[in-house]
């Protein structure tokens, strides 16, 4: 049973990262290889604000998320917008390049060493049937669920959310209806960065933060997005939690080193067998 509790914690984080991929994919059809770096950025920002400057968590958390949002907006303006020939290869390469740059800037600002954020609240373990869960993990799961829900409302109800969905359905038609497609694209990068950073903040007291954390968590978040079906909101959530559970379960039945391979085996299997993911809609091939 223990794997269930630790799997849920990791899974909530993967779900948030997967949501970040989806937001961008849904508006632009792009996969942002730098998504994981925003998770790291969130961790580093909360370290700076909370551990170094000693701000109260309740202020530091939103501040870190907003900062990441701004970085996300700039990210789109600098990297995606300036690519002249927007071919798949170029867009993939530019997000890879951007992830290298973000990682490296982080290394120069915060150093190569692992930093500790400290604890947002006194740690307690709670006995549950078949295992224990710490109140930190419960916070990750609860806040993660809240963020997903708020995001859901944002995409479903708000003006921006509708515009984003309209752009995915048909960019030209959305333009004709008076939606500023560029604005929507920029916003989607900002929101995705903010969600990623929120994930980074939540997980930071449990895993510490190192400048190169973003790569792995980004890839796993992508695996979760693929698993649930790229573009599907609740698919990403389900995919994230499922991947967390799979990983944590795998560590109990096989040498734990293979645990990290699970995410990649999932990517390959899903892409081979059911590219639309477990919960995604079948999509037409664009020629």
């Amino acid at each position: 049973m223990q794997f269930l509790y630790s799997g849920l914690t990791g899974g909530s984080i993967y779900a948030l990262v997967a949501l970040g991929y989806n937001i961008i994919y849904n508006t632009t059809g792009l996969i942002n290889f730098a998504q994981g770096e925003f998770v790291m950025l969130g961790g580093m920002l909360i370290y700076t604000l909370f551990a170094v400057f000693g701000m109260p968590f309740i202020i530091a958390f939103p501040l870190a998320v907003v900062t990441a949002l701004i970085v996300g907006l700039l990210f789109e303006r600098v990297f995606i917008n300036l690519v002249r020939v927007k071919s798949d290869i170029n867009l993939i390469t530019v997000t890879i390049a951007a992830s290298i740059l973000l990682r490296d800037f982080a290394m120069h600002i915060w150093g190569r060493d692992t930093v500790t954020v400290g604890e947002f609240m006194p740690v307690k373990s709670i006995e549950l049937p078949g295992g224990v869960i710490s109140n930190q993990s419960i916070m990750v799961i609860a806040v993660g669920a809240c963020i997903a829900f708020i995001l859901h409302l944002f995409l479903k109800r708000s003006k921006y959310g509708r515009a984003m969905r309209a752009c995915f359905d048909d960019m030209t038609a959305a333009g004709i209806c008076g939606i500023n497609a560029v604005m929507v694209r920029v916003m989607s990068f900002g929101v995705a960065a903010a969600v990623g950073a929120a994930a980074g903040v939540l997980i930071s007291p449990i895993t510490f933060v190192t400048y190169d954390d973003g790569l792995m968590i980004g890839l796993k978040g992508f695996a979760a997005a693929i698993l649930g079906g790229l573009g599907s909101f609740w698919g990403a959530v389900a995919g994230g939690i499922l991947l967390g559970l799979l990983e944590s379960f795998a560590a109990t039945i096989m040498p734990s080193g293979y645990k990290d391979a699970i995410a990649f085996v999932v990517i390959l299997l899903i892409l081979f067998v059911k590219p639309a993911g477990l919960f995604g809609k079948r999509m037409a091939k664009r020629v």
Partner: peptide, 17 residues
Amino acid sequence: DEKFGDKDKDMTSQLSK
């Protein structure tokens, strides 16, 4: 007899075993 990776973030599964 359990193992963990240098960059692993969660060893709960191994420890609960």
